[in-house]
Structure formats: C-alpha cells, structure tokens
Design a protein around this nucleic acid. Structure first.
Length: 422
DNA sequence: AGGGATGATTATTG
DNA sequence: CAATAATCATCCCT
C-alpha cells in the first residue's frame, strides 16, 4: 500500500502524459470524477492494462506510442524501484522443489524395461530378465520374445516421439515467453531472475505432462508384460511322453509321491521340462488325486499294469544279475534312485507296518500292489464312496484332518493298510 | 461355444 | 523352504 501511494505521488509530475495520444472518450468522464494528477496516472496504467484487450495492431500502436512517450523513462524508473522491493519479498516464496520421487520411480522403471534406455540392448536385456524372473526357461520362448520385443519397441517409439514432441513444444513455448518478456522488458522492468523463474514454471508444467506420458507408458508396459510374460498365458501342455513318465512315477510311488530333488531332476531331464515344472506337476497331481480319487482310478490302474510288467521284468533281471540294488539296468522305464533321498521317504511311509523292504524296490512294491488291487476286485467305483487303498495312500501323505469329505466314508480311516499289508 | 483338463501362480501353513 | 489349497489362464475335446 505504501508503495502504491508513493508511486502515485511520485508520478504527479507526469501530468499531461495521457492527453497526447489518447483520444479515449472515457478519459473525459474520469477526468471529472477524479483529481487531475491521479487521473492521468491511472489512465496511463489503464492503457497499459487494456493493451491485452485490444487487437494486435491497436496494441502495437499503443505500445509504440507509450514507449516513445517523453515521460516513459520516469515511469520506468519508478516501476523499477517498486519492483526491487516486491521481487525481494517474492524471492523467498519460490523455492526449488526436490526431484519428484514419483517421476524418479517412473524413470527407473522405464529404464529397467528398456523403454527409455539405450536403443537395442536395453530392450532385449529387459525382456530376457523379465522372462527369467517369470520362471520360464529362457530357451523356449524366442517366438514370444520377438513378439514381446516388437510391441515393446512400438511402445518405445511412441514414447520417444511423444517425449520429443513435448520437449519441442516446451522449448518453443519457452522461447516464445522469453521473447515476450524481453519485449516487455522495454516497457516494464523484468529481471533475468524473473525470466528464469518463468522458464522454470513452464518446465514444471511440461514435466508434469511428461510424467503423465511416463505413467501411461509404464502402464502399457505392465499390461504388455502381463500379457506376454505371465507363464500362465502361454501355457503349453506337456507332451504325451512327458506326462506318461510323470504319471508312471506318480503311480508307482503312490504311497509316497514326493520325488526327491535328484528324482525330480532326472524326471525333468527325461521329460524335457524344468525341475520346477516337475514340482508343479507333482503338486497339482497330488492335490487333484487326493481331491477326487475316483476320477483317477482308471488312470491309476492303467499305469499300474504298465509298470507292473516293467517291475516284474526288472525284478527278474535284477535277480538274474544277482544284484538287487540295481534293478533298472535294462528297463525301458527306469526309476533309478541312486541315493537315499527317496529311500528315506519310502521307509518312513512304511514305518508303521514294520515292513522291511529294500528302498530301491519300493516302486515295484507299490506297483505290484496296484496291480493286485486291480485284479482283486477293483470295481468301477468312481465316486461311489467305497473304501479304497488309494484313499489311505492319500491320507497317509500328510495328516490332513479332512482330506476328501465327499468320497470318504465315515469308517475309521486308519483301519486298512492295504498298500503294504499283502 | 462351453466345460473339463492342465500347467502356473498365489496365499497360507508348519 | 516346501507342501497344500485355491485360483487363474489357457488348452483342447465335444
């Protein structure tokens, strides 16, 4: 307020400033209602303010007129003086905000995904890393990879062209504003610092637009990733031979279908899948078998017959070779269990029975039992709720409290141990 | 097209 | 950390 009155009084010497080039009919009216000197100053300021409302040509003409006015330097110096004070007070308000953590996160992600990084290597490296993270084997997905990379490159291209557009627009706009300010600095005092601040404001605005771009790019990449790199989405069934091998192992180890790490590795090798896929398979198989044993009986019988024959052959060969510890020498279906991992589990499962079987013979035992059940009146009782040895097997895997409420009869669960009782 | 089969993931548990 | 149970997403047969 002080400044304003000081300005007004300071400018009282500028009387007659207005009348030179203002043919405004308003000025006549105002002249009557206001004091003379104040009216003149008010008028000239009003003219300056009104420039924005005028057409371009009018405004240019007016600006030129004002610039050439004889009292202009005086007005300018007063404005400078006022500015000096206000700028000082404003300076503290504007503080440099630290780099936005949000935008840093987005930047990091885009870099990691290969969208904003160096051209080629980044993209494929990110894709490979993503595939590795997804747990898939890196060799089997080259087709998906190329597809993924193509889409990623598309996103990348859009991102870069948009970014460039924004940058160009930003610099254009900045230039424009700077020119404007420079132009205006002839009429009013504008310090370089002010220009700087204005530029910073513009950049902030544009960087917020950029952040939106980055955000949506990140979202697009995430969608792309989930679309292409979620293993569930490109699930392939295992081939028949692999399923066969796995099922044979499963049903011949039905009393304890938990392959050791070594066994898993061997199965994986034999099936051309990864160890974790073997683990998945056994996990799924166990749970699904246990959930609906009836449904799997046919399959169980099938594999029982199949492996029983093999087992018999193997046993015969083994006894022929006088070496029971190596039963799998000539068998087309071999479950070589070279060390004690599975043996321990097998024995553990047999502990209650006091049966003492050579660990490596456990598969054959299981299989033969299966075959025995098959021939010994294994009716088609799918879902009939009849008591089967499979149930017991399932129950004995883990002491679950309520394994399968639908098919399980109310009878005592531990009363029959047919898997080892004959 | 629809539904069961199936491989993979996620949450939970011991 | 491995196993289970539930669930998802896709395959594949009818």
């Amino acid at each position: 307020m002080d400044d304003q009155t000081r300005m007004m009084t300071g400018l009282t010497g500028l009387g007659g400033l207005a009348q030179a080039d203002v043919g405004d009919p308003d000025s006549v009216r105002k002249q009557q209602s206001l004091g003379q000197p104040q009216q003149d100053i008010g008028d000239i300021l009003q003219q300056i303010m009104a420039i924005t409302d005028e057409s371009l040509d009018e405004a240019q003409a007016r600006k030129h007129a004002l610039n050439c006015h004889r009292m202009k330097p005086a007005l300018f110096s007063v404005l400078c003086e006022i500015k000096e004070k206000t700028v000082l007070s404003i300076r503290g308000v504007q503080e440099e905000d630290p780099p936005d953590p949000q935008i840093m996160r987005l930047d990091n992600m885009l870099l990691a995904e290969g969208v904003s990084g160096p051209e080629k290597g980044g993209g494929s490296a990110a894709a490979a890393a993503a595939a590795a993270a997804a747990g898939g084997s890196p060799t089997d997905s080259s087709i998906e990879h190329s597809d993924y990379r193509a889409k990623l490159a598309q996103i990348r291209q859009i991102y870069h062209s948009e970014l460039e557009k924004y940058e160009q627009a930003c610099s254009e706009f900045t230039n424009h504003v700077m020119n404007l300010l420079r132009e205006q600095s002839r009429t009013r005092p504008i310090s370089p610092k002010e220009i700087e601040r204005m530029v910073a404001i513009i950049h902030r605005k544009f960087s917020s637009i950029q952040m939106q771009l980055k955000q949506s790019t990140c979202e697009a990449v995430m969608i792309l990733r989930s679309r292409f790199l979620d293993a569930r989405r490109k699930r392939r069934n295992f081939n028949k031979q692999a399923t066969e091998v796995l099922n044979e192992y499963f049903y011949s180890h039905l009393s304890n279908p938990y392959p050791s790490e070594e066994a898993k590795e061997e199965l994986a090798k034999k099936c051309g899948i990864t160890v974790s896929q073997v683990s998945n398979w056994f996990g799924n198989k166990r749970i699904r078998y246990k959930k609906n044993i009836g449904k799997f009986q046919e399959e169980a019988n099938l594999y029982a017959v199949k492996t029983a024959v093999d087992a018999a052959n193997v046993s015969a060969q083994a006894s022929q070779a006088n070496s029971p510890a190596t039963p799998n020498s000539g068998s087309p279906v071999s479950y070589s269990l070279p060390n004690t991992g599975d043996a321990y589990l097998s024995l553990r499962s047999l502990n209650g029975e006091g049966l003492n079987i050579a660990p490596s013979l456990q598969p054959q035992v299981d299989t033969l039992h299966r075959a025995t059940h098959l021939t010994g009146g294994y009716e088609e009782l799918s879902g009939s709720g009849l008591y089967t040895p499979h149930c017991l097997d399932a129950n004995s895997w883990q002491d679950t409290t309520n394994p399968h409420p639908v098919t399980s009869p109310p009878g005592p669960p531990g009363s029959v141990h047919s898997d080892t009782s004959n």
